[in-house]
């Protein structure tokens, strides 16, 4: 990955490489923006690289030159989606594919490791990872410490890339996502569902981290920032918060690639991914379609017109 980045910058093929760098402490990595070949050594890749860096390509939209971005399988679907939406130009991005055996959840790793330590090496081991630090070896299984989203991963390798950094992951992809998380909520009674979501949304701070980290949120001006129009008020209460989350979920329907960033970034633990996955599940049922972004020229369920559409709801 470092060699690829250095070569790309040295040869002038790209003028920027967006990747992961060492964060503060073992639990975190941080996005880095590499512009000099000599800085390529800052790049790291380990099972705590949770961020979807594709979001940053939107910042490069109107800039000169070509940017390279490091993507995991789930993130790569967002690249396809943004190309399909004409948000980014395929010619202006260079995609460094990263194989992934699953990402560890910092909250589930915390406590087991001294956070002040640094990862010296990561070894794939059985159903998880050994993190080697100066103090020794820490073993984690994906079942015990993995991110929830990785248990339904359908792309352990990127679906679109210009170059792969390393050998592809041989962790088997999940072919038939049972949407157990969605069904668990669907099994609740109406009253239980209402109480469940009321409890979640009443915690919402309206910090908009879910929106700002979302690759499907590419509007130049978000409707929730248009305070003067009166569509939605700035006050934070259950009613407004519910409106915010439901409008957002519907707005990204058919464009959400199920990367799970919204849920990862939420500071108050709102299970946002399941909201988007309910819509994803319905899209699959109704239109027999793949997860958005799975293929470069995939159909856009809610973004295309077909004369054969039965329009049975009209």
């Amino acid at each position: 990955m470092r060699e690829i980045a250095r070569d790309l910058l040295e040869s002038g093929q790209v003028n920027l490489v967006i990747g992961y760098g060492r964060g503060t402490g073992i639990l975190r990595t941080t996005p880095v923006f590499i512009r000099k070949p000599s800085d390529a050594g800052q790049l790291v890749y380990n099972p705590l690289c949770g961020n979807n860096l594709v979001k940053y390509l939107l910042d490069q939209r109107n800039k000169e030159g070509r940017a390279a971005v490091c993507v995991k399988g789930c993130d790569s679907r967002a690249v396809n989606r943004l190309i399909q939406d004409r948000q980014i130009d395929r010619e202006k991005v260079y995609i460094i594919g990263l194989p992934c055996g699953g990402i560890l959840d910092p909250d589930r790793v915390e406590g087991a490791v001294d956070p002040g330590e640094e990862i010296k090496e990561t070894v794939i081991s059985g159903e998880g990872y050994d993190l080697i630090t100066a103090a020794g070896k820490y073993s984690f299984t994906m079942a015990g410490a993995g991110s929830e989203k990785c248990s339904t991963c359908q792309n352990h390798n990127p679906v679109v890339y210009d170059v792969m950094a390393g050998d592809p992951s041989d962790t088997p992809d999940i072919k038939d996502d049972g949407f157990d998380d969605v069904r668990k909520i669907e099994e609740m009674t109406v009253e239980q569902k209402s109480a469940y979501w009321d409890r979640q949304f009443s915690r919402c701070l309206r910090c908009y981290a879910c929106r700002n980290s979302c690759t499907a949120c590419s509007c130049r001006e978000c409707v929730f920032d248009q305070v003067n129009t009166g569509w939605v008020s700035r006050s934070s209460n259950l009613s407004e918060n519910t409106a915010f989350h439901l409008i957002r979920a519907f707005h990204v329907a058919g464009r959400c690639v199920d990367c799970g960033e919204c849920e990862r970034v939420c500071p108050v633990g709102i299970p946002l991914r399941v909201l988007n996955r309910k819509i994803l599940m319905d899209l699959k049922d109704l239109f027999n379609t793949a997860t958005p972004g799975l293929t470069p020229d995939g159909e856009r369920v809610l973004g295309q017109f077909s004369a054969d559409d039965p329009e049975e709801f009209m």
């Binding site: 996005p31 880095v32 923006f33 940053y56 701070l205 910090c207 908009y208 981290a209 929106r211 980290s213």
Partner: peptide
């Protein structure tokens, strides 16, 4: 600044 997402967390 470049990595900041501009959220309010």
């Amino acid at each position: 600044f470049e990595k900041c997402l501009g959220c309010g967390i």
